[in-house]
Write a protein that binds this DNA or RNA. Structure first.
Length: 871
RNA sequence: GCGGACGUGGUGGAACUGGUAGACACACAGGACUUAAAAUCCUGAGGGGGAAACCCCGUGAGGGUUCGAGUCCCUCCGUCCGCACCA
């Protein structure tokens, strides 16, 4: 029988108490003049959509564990929070409900701030800002102007996704099945001038530096490398015959110059300059180009789209086959955006070229022979051969490998001359395109430029910053409210003083999130960054967020940091030293008999079947999917925190599932987490009652039971330390469970009046348990700490260091195998000699029986691990 | 199509550099306490055989390397993710 358990832990009440206590003492405020080593923990800041969701709870819990752990380890930890506050949803709210975007945004921030505060996060709230704060976007405008001066900003006219109903450019992600995500209108490809950041200047550097990011997930690095899409090849110049003036050369980029002898045509993009020139005097060509423009750009459409081409009648001379010519087609599958917008087609070794050649009846000549194939009988049917092999039908390249042939043809062509230029140049192409930041929207950072009919495009002078968003805007017509505003855009030209207009485009919100981590270092600085502060804090030591930002945000931020370095705002190139991408929060889905989605809190289980809580009608349980409002499978963090407390939500988020994987939220799991916290509460009370204070027993006076409990405790400290360092929170949790089980067993074994050594061990174990659990369940840990008699805060208590002597056992238990099958185990001195281990193993009854009188061929002994007898 | 990751009990998962597979938890079953329930505590549990000691099988499938494979190599199957007419 156990003594009466302590009353239940009233989490919601106690949590508020400790949150107030931490805040009162300013525990999480940090400054740069601190002797401790710095550590910067950052979670991707939230978009203030209205309320926090479980994804936030998971993300911020993980970051908070790291922050609290590093603080306990003696670091000066910066752990800030802010709001990624510009963006389209605020404008939608304005359009749909007539609320001003600013009011909608700041109201949401107020709600979400208080929700985050209820989680007990160790944040330095004094550094909070929103990207829609005038001060923040003012500094962002200065950055833009500095980047422009440094040559990193450009104005380009290029193809954009234009939504004709909403009258705005849409990002690729906002085009769904060829239609605008909000208006549903068919998106048009339109050429329009836009402001771009020259991220392509850094393509090679952004690629190379991935190798230095050793604390980034391989997956993310790979995705970025693919996105940058470097390919090495050859730019080949083809001399044209009978082409319009100014087009006596067509430049083609290829990664397979080795297949040049197998070329049977040239294809150019519909918007290639030559195609346009031809269209001027060729109606059919013009009609074909117009038809290509209509074609959709979605994956599904491209998949089914036929390869179409228009024979222009123009031809080019083959660079290495004397007297041969190739016809030039305008083709729908050639992109102007990649390479030179022109290719040479080698049908035998490229599937698209083959499809095209078959449609047009062009020759298909194999020039690469697969290993083992016979040159005489080898032919291409429906599938192009793209693998390695030996060159054939290729003149001086015959007999070479693909790799050798690439070099040989390059060397030859580079030396030739076409119209005064080299016949070819080795070239590197990237898939990455410059970052278009112009958005025709109100709720974003205005681009500080002015269009003057006399002086052209001029920057807003420093003294006239910030360019402030007007408050009095209306959303009653489609398009950009800044453009419709009666007065805002009209200004005097800063150069000539004449009438001019402001740029009405605002910046992509990804710009806002590309430097906020630098602003957190000195959020009130009068310049974008404070040299001392960013010098001290950057780079971010541990960044945590969703993998959905693997490319966009994380690539932009890496570019922006380089740009800020170039313009003297920071002194590093890489913003995030360590990156962790956490999984999503999922939940079962439910539907009623009419096929309508049902919320989890409306579903109950009756006799093992899911039924509606109110109506009792049967509910169909669907697959587990990531929480989303549309499927109604969401659980509100507020409800959970109010019912069980923040520690329960935090503990659940860290338990069982590895942090990088999706976690399934279940009611049973939450209750389990809550039960465990109550159990810790009881165990600590009991241990505090039975335990002796420090000094009550001296080292060396511990009996075997006390000794073994102490070993369990110190081993758990070591294991949890290791797990948290590696962000393997689920295994840390498992270690804590194990230690709680050990403490519980120890309390029971010790009886109502434990001996002095056991009293000491019980108390020590309870203390260590609370200390290693404190980053995860900080509120309960504070209460337990008080129960153990301390008037200090556990949040200010250093991380425990395990006693080395207790981590190593004097004896070890090792398995004994016979022919690789485990037959027995052996407990022996840790430092026992090989021969002794072997001798002891061979004496075991089970081992002798398993050998069964056979001759022992060999005995493998791995001290402290295993013995394997081969017979 | 290209690139990548993963596949372990009823479930989530553990197993550091190859060395006792299934830690820990959830769910489940039995028991204790209780008039009863809740809460709590104890016990059990990969599959099969056996009274037991023990034995056989077992980490998606098949093969290989090794004294020894969840872990390394090859082939196949399945799931998930990213990119996608990229020349």
């Amino acid at each position: 029988m156990r003594p009466m358990a302590a009353e239940r832990y009233d989490a919601p009440k106690r949590e508020k108490h400790w949150q107030a206590e931490w805040e009162k003492r300013g525990l999480f405020r940090v400054a740069e003049d601190d002797p401790r080593p710095k550590y910067y923990v950052l979670e991707m800041f939230p978009y203030p959509s209205g309320r926090i969701h479980m994804g936030h709870v998971r993300n911020y819990t993980m970051g908070d564990v790291v922050a609290r752990y590093m603080r306990a380890k003696g670091h000066n930890v910066l752990h800030p929070m802010g709001w990624d506050a510009f963006g389209l949803p605020a404008e939608n709210a304005a359009i749909e409900r007539g609320i001003h975007p600013a009011k909608w945004t700041y109201d949401n921030i107020a709600v979400m701030r208080s929700q985050l505060k209820s989680m007990g996060l160790s944040l330095d709230w004094s550094r909070e800002f929103a990207t829609c704060d005038l001060d923040y976007y003012h500094q962002q405008q200065r950055l833009f102007l500095d980047m422009r001066k440094a040559g990193l900003v450009d104005r380009k006219t290029r193809k954009v996704n234009w939504d004709p109903v909403d009258q705005t450019v849409l990002a690729n992600e906002q085009v769904i099945d060829g239609r605008g995500w909000r208006s549903g209108a068919l998106v048009e490809q339109r050429e329009q001038p836009e402001w771009v950041f020259k991220i392509t200047d850094y393509a090679q550097d952004l690629l190379d530096a991935l190798a230095t990011l050793d604390r980034w997930p391989e997956k993310v690095k790979l995705m970025q490398a693919n996105w940058i899409g470097r390919s090495e090849g050859l730019l080949i110049r083809f001399e044209t015959e009978s082409a319009p003036k100014g087009h006596d050369v067509i430049e083609v980029f290829t990664t397979r110059p080795d297949t040049l002898f197998g070329a049977s045509f040239i294809a150019i993009a519909p918007d290639h300059p030559l195609a346009k020139a031809i269209a001027e005097s060729d109606r059919d060509a013009a009609a074909f180009i117009a038809e290509c423009r209509k074609g959709g750009t979605t994956a599904a459409e491209l998949e089914t789209q036929e390869k179409k081409g228009y024979d222009t009648g123009v031809s080019v001379r083959h660079p290495v086959i004397q007297g041969a010519t190739l016809p030039v087609f305008i083709a729908n599958f050639i992109l102007m955006e990649y390479g030179t917008g022109a290719i040479f087609g080698c049908p035998a070794h490229d599937q698209r070229d083959l499809d095209f050649a078959r449609a047009k009846g062009l020759p298909v000549l194999p020039v690469v022979l697969p290993p083992g194939a016979d040159a005489k009988s080898f032919a291409i049917a429906d599938e192009a051969y793209t693998g390695e092999g030996t060159l054939i039908n290729s003149g001086f390249l015959d007999g070479l490998s693909v790799e050798e042939a690439k070099n040989a043809i390059a060397e030859r062509l580079v030396k030739t001359k076409i119209k005064g230029k080299a016949g070819a140049e080795r070239q590197v192409q990237y898939r990455l395109r410059d970052w278009g930041i112009s958005r025709q929207r109100y709720w974003g950072c205005p681009i500080p430029m002015i269009h003057c009919p006399v002086c052209g495009i001029v920057p807003v002078p420093e003294r006239d910053l910030p360019v402030k968003l007007p408050d009095d805007v209306s959303f009653d017509k489609p398009g950009n409210p800044l453009d419709h505003h009666p007065t805002w855009k009209h200004v005097a030209c800063p150069t000539c003083g004449g009438p001019a207009t402001r740029e009405t485009d605002t910046m992509d919100t990804f710009v806002d999130s590309s430097w906020y981590f630098a602003r957190f270092c000195a959020p009130k600085a009068k310049t974008p960054t404070d040299t001392n502060a960013v010098g001290y804090w950057l780079p971010v030591d541990q960044y945590i967020g969703g993998v959905e930002h693997a490319i966009l945000h994380l690539l932009y931020a890496r570019f922006f940091t380089r740009a800020m370095h170039k313009t003297g705002h920071v002194s590093v190139d890489e913003p995030f030293k360590g990156l962790f991408t956490q999984g999503m929060v999922t939940h079962e889905t439910y539907k009623d008999s009419r096929g309508k989605w049902v919320q989890p809190d409306e579903v109950i289980r009756k006799d093992g079947k899911a039924v509606h809580a109110k109506t009792g009608e049967p509910i169909t349980v669907g697959p587990v999917e990531s929480m989303s409002k549309s499927k109604k499978n969401v659980v509100d963090p507020d409800t959970i925190i109010a019912a069980f407390g923040a520690d329960t939500a935090r503990w659940f988020m860290l338990s069982d599932t590895p942090p990088e994987r999706d976690i399934e939220w279940t009611a049973a799991g939450v209750e389990g987490a809550h039960r465990f916290l109550q159990r810790v509460w009881r165990l600590v009370h009991e241990a505090a009652g039975k335990g002796a204070h420090r000094g009550a027993a001296k080292p060396g006076e511990f009996g075997p039971e006390a000794e073994s409990l102490r070993r369990a405790a110190h081993k758990a400290v070591a294991a949890v330390t290791n797990a948290v360092e590696k962000l393997r929170f689920n295994t840390a949790v498992a270690q804590i469970y194990e230690l709680a089980n050990a403490l519980s067993a120890g309390l029971q074994a010790a009886g109502p009046k434990p001996a002095p050594d056991m009293a000491y061990a019980l108390r020590e174990t309870a203390e260590l348990l609370v200390r290693i659990a404190s980053p995860m369940i900080p509120h309960l840990a504070e209460d337990c700490w008080a129960v153990l008699g301390y008037d200090s805060l556990i949040a200010e208590t250093p991380w425990p260091v395990p006693e080395k002597a207790l981590l190593q056992e004097d004896t070890v238990t090792i398995a004994v195998q016979v022919n690789g099958k485990r037959r027995d185990e052996l407990t022996i001195a840790r430092d026992a000699a090989r021969e002794d281990i072997e001798a002891a193993a061979l004496k075991l009854d089970n081992v002798v029986r398993a050998i069964g009188g056979r001759k022992i061929k060999k005995v493998v002994v791995v001290p402290q691990r295993i013995v394997n007898v081969v017979a």
